[in-house]
């Protein structure tokens, strides 16, 4: 302890009374005892090797995560494109089938209409006077 006359004079000037002085002395002993105990205590030191290993592991994990994310994104994109292609092909097939069906039904309707008109126009010669009568009646 290095509390000379000057120190004590200064303390008196600061208004340190007996009670406060005792508390300050105890506080000083406390900090000194604690400091010495902790100073002498062996502590676990993080070695550079350990630190570099951790940094390397961190980087490796980061790279794996980044690569995984990129691969996942690419796979997802590819998969979506495949699905789009399949959907487009299906749509085109449906469209073709529809068009073919429409074409076929139109051809059938045309044929039936032709047959109808052919049948209605070609009256046997023996029936010609009767047909004329029918058309006159319709006109009247």
């Amino acid at each position: 302890m290095r509390m000379g006359a000057n120190f004590e004079n200064e303390d008196r000037g600061l208004g340190v009374d007996a009670e406060l002085g005792e508390a300050l002395k105890n506080f000083r002993s406390n900090v000194h005892a604690w400091g010495e105990a902790e100073y002498g205590r062996a502590r676990q030191v993080k070695t550079v090797h350990e630190l570099s290993w951790r940094v390397a592991a961190g980087w490796a994990l980061g790279c794996v995560l980044a690569a995984g994310s990129v691969t996942g994104a690419l796979y997802e994109r590819h998969h979506q494109r495949e699905l789009q292609k399949i959907a487009a092909a299906e749509r085109a097939a449906r469209q073709q089938k529809l068009e073919a069906e429409q074409r076929a039904s139109k051809e059938d309707e045309d044929l039936l209409a032709k047959v109808d008109s052919d049948v209605s126009r070609e009256v046997p010669s023996a029936m010609e006077p009767l047909a004329q009568l029918m058309s006159e009646n319709e006109a009247q």
């Binding site: 302890m1 290095r2 509390m3 200064e10 508390a23 300050l24 105890n26 506080f27 000083r28």
Partner: peptide, 30 residues
């Protein structure tokens, strides 16, 4: 007593704490 002093030290400003510790732990003159 020490507990009370620690509590007081905790409430001091940075400068007050530094000055206080230098004086009453490290026994330094003004």
């Amino acid at each position: 007593q020490v507990g009370h002093v620690w509590k007081a030290v905790e409430g001091l400003s940075g400068r007050q704490r530094t000055v206080f510790l230098l004086r009453y732990v490290e026994d330094q003159e003004l």
